[in-house]
Structures are given as structure tokens and as C-alpha cells.
Design a binder for these strands. Structure first.
Lengths: 138, 138
DNA sequence: CCGTATCCGATGAGATACTG
DNA sequence: CAGTATCTCATCGGATACGG
């Protein structure tokens, strides 16, 4: 029974919404997942993609996503270390949500202003990272 | 594979996602908006719909949504007071996002367990509420 | 390269009581 | 009915430094 009913819910109608949003609630989770939609990423790749996210938060958010079964962490026991993050099937099933968010943002950014707390861009003008270490693709 | 194969973005691909999620980020915002999808609600109606949300938080979240232009607050200068909340057109444009969340939740609740922090239902068993507010018409 | 540990300030969010 | 006020604790999240 995929859908209980369009009018009937086990508890509150907002229940499912809450459960879903709780998973991507967190300062970086949705962005992380969005980035992972396009493929597997390494830790430092993600860091470059989200310049404002400290390693601590990066690890934190990634681990929670992993615990929630949305992200898969693959560790290669090698030197130098290599860790890859990718979306699990469950994580990928979030794609409609993520794309809906993306689509909404694309359609509305800059059109309505950002009244109270909407800062755009994961990497703002806080600090510029001219260059980071080269690519050590294994 | 290319990092940005979707189309072009102002800054980071996650930018739009971030902007969007920032608006519904907050413990109750998405649920509130979801409830408002089905129509205008009064303050205490919403309270009944989200039993776990204290009046303080309710006001807080509602006000932020209002400031962000997603929700419209209508005050009737009457006795007893009457205040109605409804979605603005902008708020309603969030419908795809909210429905995507809802749909995901419906499809996945109870199927994968809730590893670390997923509590379902706005009204959980945090505090025993012996008195179930049935249909107590005001 | 991929993280961890620690410190610490900012904010979130619950309880409770009061008001026009 | 529809909120406010205050107090407090918990958590989030940033900075920085270090480790395998």
C-alpha cells in the first residue's frame, strides 16, 4: 500500500513531510546530496564544492547522511587515503525533492529578494580559494 | 563527468537548492506550509494540527514565513480576535517541493527505519497527552 | 588525503506564565 | 482567541589545531 489515501494518514498529514525533511535538515545536507546527484565525490572534492563548509561540518553532515542510509561512504585502504561518497538508492530516491528545491530556487532567486535569512551560494565572498592541491586521481 | 552538466548556474549548483531549503528550514516550517496547502487556517487550528509546536515556536515560524513572503497573515480586528494564515502565491509555488517531501515520506516511512534522528509525526510521544483534543470546537 | 578534538559563541527550542 | 515574556538548557555550527 503505497498510498494510504490522499485524504487519510496514519497520524498527521505533515508526518511524512516531517520525516522527509528531517533527513535533509541540516545546514549542508541538501546541498551535499544535490552535489552527489551528479556522481561520486571524494572528500576534498566536496570541500571545494562547498567552500564554506568546514571539514568538521562536512564530516558531520556526511556521517549523518550515511547513518540515515542516504549516502554511501567507501573507504579505500590505501596510501594516500581515498574516500568516496555516493548516493545510495534511497538517497537517489530523494532526487525529486532535490530537483524540486533546485527548480524553485532557480525560478525565484533574485526575483523576490531575501527578506530575513536567505543567503545564497554555499561559497560566498567570505574567502577565495585560489587553488587547492592538484588532482591525484588514482 | 562534468561537474555541472545540468545547465548554467550563477555560482554553485547547490546555490539554488540552498536558497530554497533555507526558506523551509526550521523545525515546523515545512509542516506548516504543507498544512496551509489545503487552505487557510487559524492560529489554534494550526496548533491542533501540530500539537508539539509551542505557541512561541508557532508564532516564530509563522512570522518568518510571513517575512519571507511565503505566508500571508490576515488579522480581523474583532472580538474575539481572529487571525488567518494562508499561503501566498510564492508560498504556493512551493507546492512541488512540499509534495515531493510528502511523497517521499509516504513511500519510505517505516521501510528503512529511522537511524539517528528521524522522529515521525509532529505529535510524538515525548509528553503524554492524556487529553486527546478530539473535535473540541471552539 | 581524510579526517578528529577541543573550545566556544550563537541560535534553537522547550516550559511556563501572563495579556489584550 | 491569539499571541508575549522570560528563563533556561541543548544543539548547531564556526575557528583552530592536530593525527594516522
Amino acid at each position: 500500500m503505497a498510498k494510504a489515501s490522499h485524504s487519510r494518514f496514519d497520524c498527521n498529514p505533515g508526518c511524512a513531510v516531517e520525516a522527509a525533511i528531517n533527513l535533509i535538515d541540516g545546514k549542508w545536507k541538501s546541498i551535499l546530496m544535490f552535489q552527489l546527484l551528479s556522481g561520486t565525490r571524494r572528500f576534498n572534492e566536496l570541500r571545494r564544492l562547498l567552500p564554506n563548509c568546514t571539514p568538521r561540518m562536512m564530516t558531520n553532515q556526511l556521517r549523518e547522511l550515511e547513518q540515515d542510509g542516504l549516502v554511501i561512504r567507501t573507504v579505500y585502504a590505501q596510501v594516500p587515503p581515498k574516500v568516496e561518497y555516493s548516493l545510495s538508492p534511497l538517497g537517489r530516491s530523494m532526487e525529486p525533492v532535490l530537483m524540486a528545491l533546485k527548480h524553485w530556487g532557480d525560478a525565484n532567486i533574485g526575483r523576490y529578494g531575501k527578506p530575513h535569512a536567505v543567503q545564497t551560494c554555499s561559497g560566498d565572498s567570505r574567502r577565495d580559494r585560489p587553488e587547492d592541491s592538484g588532482r591525484t586521481a588514482a
